[in-house]
Design a protein around this nucleic acid. Structure first.
Lengths: 110, 110
DNA sequence: CAGCATCCACGTTGATACTG
DNA sequence: CAGTATCAACGTGGATGCTG
């Protein structure tokens, strides 16, 4: 990504902008999850994109990644303390989005 | 766009996700602007993308487009009443983004 | 002035196969 | 189990030229 991101709004859009990132966070907010369990909760995502998004979110400090050096390997993902600061923001975004979806529905129904 | 957008957060990201859309809104919040004046305020945007973004925002109901049937033509863009509801949301997003940018700066400086 | 049409470069997403 | 590597498909963004 070569974005300059002078605009902070774009920063946020970039962090959450991956196709499945909001859904990943949504599930992680509920509870910590292992790689495989989380993947099963998000149908239709390819493994590559899935792990790429997780790495992105980890690099941004939004999610924590805990490795248990067992055999077979076990890796658990969770929302970081810093990542939790994103929740109220997401809620505001969510509220607007819900209203907007309703609005568009009414439009097409009229 | 073929997004399903079940998730309202994705709805918002889609609406604001165009590369120049936040900047367009930023300038329109300040005051109404004509096509050409607005374009000059946003350097490096191609005309195609610029008008495409404006049409997107118009279709979503965020901006109003007023045509004065004069010669030469004059078209003025402005934030709609509905679009103004987006401002507080953008401010929340902006606050988070600013903090995140600072955080990343500190990281790379350490 | 305020666009649209065409063509092109690039990045993101995705399918598939392989590995410690 | 939890990934990585490779290759293909698609969509967004962009340059350029034309029009009412």
């Amino acid at each position: 990504m070569i974005h300059q991101r002078k605009c902070p709004v774009e920063t946020l859009i970039h962090v959450l902008g991956g196709k499945w990132k909001p859904m990943i966070l949504w599930h992680l907010i509920e509870s910590n999850k292992r790689f495989n369990d989380l993947e099963k909760l998000i149908p239709d995502v390819s493994q590559k994109i899935f792990s790429q998004h997780l790495r992105d979110l980890e690099r941004e400090g939004i999610v924590d990644r805990t490795v248990y050096p067992t055999i077979p390997p076990k890796v658990e993902y969770s929302i970081s303390e810093y990542g939790k600061k994103l929740i109220p923001v997401a809620e505001v975004m969510c509220a607007w989005g819900e209203n907007h979806n309703k609005r568009k529905y009414k439009e097409s129904a009229s």
